[in-house]
Nucleic acid binder design. Structure first.
Lengths: 244, 244
DNA sequence: GAGGTTTCTTGAACGCGTTCAAGATTATTG
DNA sequence: CAATAATCTTGAACGCGTTCAAGAAACCTC
């Protein structure tokens, strides 16, 4: 929907906010999340501690900004490939590899991310409303992976597939966070194998003979999603719209 | 292996430690994790702050003790049922329901648990060595669910099934943590449906025709486990053995 | 441009998890 | 029993995330 480029706010406050965010992300990348203190961020950005808190009321909210940022980068990296007409398998493979590549500079930081991400009370757990926008956008990306592929997939499955692939991608990220192999070789291997398997399972599930089982599985997925905030009463909850 | 009962240490130190733990768990249950401070725990237990830290060098370690405790309770609740000869489906269903029932008093607290649990650097993330013992014991429980059931399952799958079911059970817990429905109705519904589905998928996967796909899936599971600490160099790493 | 209003900025202060040097208590040994 | 060692206990102190009352700067409005 929105273009990729960073919107560089021209207002005074917007620039200060951007400055703080850039400083924070750089420090997170270089020294990790825990050991980067709010005081250090403020000092390096040349603002007071209170000022940093004026724009980011909690350290966690800097993570949310990170979510947003890396999603944009991943999207930008994926778009050219998504234009091409490829098999579902090839498209998924590319998207997943690009995701990991995008996150790679922040590997250590991302651990802290998941820490808060899994917390129900946290504003950034991926199932909560606050991160709605980014999540929706992320699911949309997988919708693009599915939609424009020429794979023959029954409608019922096709509808749920983006969400399922998003869940799958969260699992891969969880694995990646724990992966300390050289050049993240194990994660890439896992992606290769799991995408291959997923492709086969999708084919199998698309077989008419599998219809009853498929229906059951899909109603289970419904169960899963039901409680999650699917709808945002706020109609302009685009990725950009949630800036506060 | 070991009996269920709490081992009440007779030494002075052991009793102080137990007192602190009991106080902490009670307060966690009543007021949640975050708002229960180490100072409050110490005060209520009638010891000094530093003393609490002597026995539990971090607040997180209290969570690990909680892990251990609830696993023991879950095991105790499951054992009578596991004696009976039931179908795999029935056994799994019971074990899962009992798990949720065991955790229920700590629902709010458990959120904080997962928060740290997902963190790679944390001592308690379920994939790390420190929680090895409890995890192994937990997987063992699912091994019991599988082994003594009369389901006809090919050997290759049978071997990996306990670990897979453990992963599944972690997923259910993650859902439960986010579940705010009355009496956790949605979680129980999810368990019913997912166990039913799992049972069918296992049957399907056991079909000789499915052998190639099954082999692929299982080699993927291998990939998953590879990096995780499967072996503990410490031979007496029983549930009890890891008390330090 | 004076007066008022919104936006931005500051640093002191609070409560938290955690550390640690010092002392008290208990166990072990000759 | 005295002396030494091991264990346990204490509370002050540190750095952290976060809050907040107070003020400065920018922006209106007439």
């Amino acid at each position: 929907m929105s273009p990729i480029g960073r919107k560089v706010s021209t207002t005074k406050g917007g620039q200060t906010k951007a400055l703080i965010l850039e400083t924070a992300l750089k420090m997170f990348r270089d020294h990790g999340y825990e050991s980067t203190t709010m005081r250090a961020i403020a000092r390096k950005a040349g603002v007071s501690l209170g000022n940093a808190y004026y724009y980011f009321p909690s350290k966690e909210l800097l993570i949310q900004a990170f979510y947003h940022r890396t999603h944009q980068e991943h999207l930008a990296a994926s778009l050219p490939m998504l234009e091409k007409e490829l098999s579902l398998k090839a498209r998924l493979l590319d998207v997943m590899r690009l995701k990991i590549a995008t996150l790679e500079p922040y590997h250590e930081f991302a651990g802290a991310l998941f820490k808060t991400a899994a917390h129900p009370q946290s504003a950034l757990n991926p199932f909560a409303t606050a991160s709605d926008a980014v999540r929706q956008a992320s699911i949309q990306l997988f919708a693009d992976v599915v939609t424009k592929s020429k794979a023959r997939i029954p409608e019922d499955l096709r509808v749920e597939l983006p969400y399922l692939l998003w869940l799958y991608h969260m699992g891969i990220i969880l694995f990646w966070i724990h992966d300390s192999s050289r050049k993240r070789a194990r994660t890439y291997r896992l992606i290769d194998h799991s995408v291959d398997l997923l492709d086969r399972v999708i084919s199998l599930a698309s077989n008419p003979l599998m219809r009853p089982l498929r229906k059951r599985a899909l109603s289970l997925v419904d169960e899963l999603r039901e409680g999650l905030p699917l709808d945002s009463e706020d109609p302009e909850s685009t990725v950009e719209g949630r800036q506060k």
